[in-house]
Design a protein around this nucleic acid. Structure first.
Ligand SMILES: [Mn+2]
Ligand SMILES: [Mn+2]
Ligand SMILES: [Zn+2]
Ligand SMILES: [Zn+2]
Lengths: 141, 141
DNA sequence: ATCGCAAATGAGAACGATTATCATTTGCAT
DNA sequence: ATGCAAATGATAATCGTTCTCATTTGCGAT
């Protein structure tokens, strides 16, 4: 096991709830999860962690740089493991599937747009909402 | 006055609250406003409209295509007059100022990214969060 | 102008996501 | 094993938004 190290390095002491949340993300079974998603998946697997703790831990992990938070439409934040490389998202309006992409041209153009207007970019979010045209889309999971 | 026509054309009957909300947006004093912003500005100008009505009217105007809704970070939706041409936003993290832009290259690249992955775009939102480097930024209004 | 009535309004309750409170438990350095 | 700051979890509180429902209003037909 190496999770305890991750937490230590992040300056967080290694507690049971934190280890459970972290390994859920590291399990890879679901890459983008809301607090509610995490809470329910943990309950389902027999590990019960308080909902308040889930929220707290997700925020701490975000601050520690272990997770990245996204604000998609629909109100609830979604988290994913921080794998170091920035990327943007396409969300399927039919099935909710989230696909990741990174486009150098778009990234470069954003810098130019900002610079031209006297801004220095801190962060950005590009969310494309679309319909899968492929059969892989279960249209309403 | 031409607001009543706008409402008629949108299939909405011309009521006092709807006219007040519409003319607030048309006054141009503030381009991007949340429901709370609208509610408070109307109260401040002596026109009292119920908060529930403000929410209802904003949603109806959005559906009618009179307003466009944006989901910036921070939870609350923001509305602006629909001037027909799509654009994206740069938000200053210091003063909250919102600047608009439209970049053909970015728009085109998004289409390509989506098409390459078998998606057909319905909508998208590109939010750049940045700091104004110019003096015009009041750094905390 | 008056009527009639469906549509709209507004006060307040309800809601869903998130945060705050605080008594109890736990990790961990000694 | 002990002590204690830090973390947890049940619950209350908060925030933005939507719902409910009794009252009011816009407006087409008289
Ligand atoms: Mn992602
Ligand atoms: Mn705008
Ligand atoms: Zn799909
Ligand atoms: Zn600024």
């Amino acid at each position: 096991m190496h999770q305890p190290e991750h937490l230590k390095n992040a300056g967080l002491k290694s507690t049971v709830p934190r280890l459970k949340v972290l390994s859920l993300f590291e399990s890879g079974q679901e890459r983008h999860m809301s607090a509610e998603d995490v809470y329910k998946l943990l309950l389902a697997s027999g590990d019960d962690v308080g909902l308040a703790t889930v929220y707290r831990v997700l925020t701490q992990f975000e601050q520690a740089g272990l997770l990245v938070r996204h604000y998609f439409e629909g109100g609830k934040s979604v988290f994913e493991l921080n794998q170091g490389k920035h990327h943007d998202h396409i969300v399927c309006l039919q099935c909710g599937r989230v696909e990741e992409f990174y486009d150098t041209a778009i990234e470069a153009r954003q810098e130019k747009v900002a610079a031209d207007r006297g801004f220095s970019i801190r962060d950005h979010a590009l969310h494309i909402y679309a319909d899968c045209t492929k059969k892989q889309c279960p249209h309403k999971v």
